[in-house]
């Protein structure tokens, strides 16, 4: 029962996070929401594992925590590489002084 209260709070928070993910407005908000949801899932798993009387399943919570972290890093790397590419494109544009076709971005 006591775990259920915590789990309920966590699930409601998950709903709120999902709301943020759906609302956006920026991609960073979505990433924030994903990260939040991941943490909440870890908590939810830990709590329900205890509530179901199978605390040995805490392994899953560990996995979730790890994966969540990797996911966020992947997203950030995606941003960085994209920003870099944009910078290159801007440089290329100013160098050639014209629009660059979608297929041949980058200084070549």
């Amino acid at each position: 029962m006591m775990f259920a209260v915590g789990a309920a709070a966590v699930t409601i928070t998950m709903m709120l996070a999902l709301l943020r993910a759906l609302l956006g407005p920026s991609v960073y908000d979505r990433v924030l929401a994903v990260n939040m949801l991941g943490t909440k899932t870890v908590l939810l798993l830990a709590l329900t594992a205890f509530a179901m009387g199978r605390p040995d399943f805490i392994d899953l919570a560990i996995t979730y925590a790890l994966i969540n972290f990797i996911g966020v890093i992947a997203v950030l790397q995606f941003f960085y590489s994209r920003d870099l590419r944009k910078a290159e494109e801007r440089a290329a544009k100013s160098a050639h002084g014209g629009a660059v076709g979608p297929s041949q971005a980058g200084p070549q």
């Binding site: 899932t41 939810l44 399943f57």
Partner: peptide, 27 residues
């Protein structure tokens, strides 16, 4: 991003449905 959330939710559901291995895999 939402797909990632979706997977997390499904994984949690699987866990609640006694499918620990599946939940781990889905995550």
């Amino acid at each position: 991003m939402l797909m990632g959330i979706f997977s997390l939710l499904m994984a949690a559901t699987f866990f609640l449905l006694d499918a620990a291995d599946v939940a781990l895999t889905e995550a």
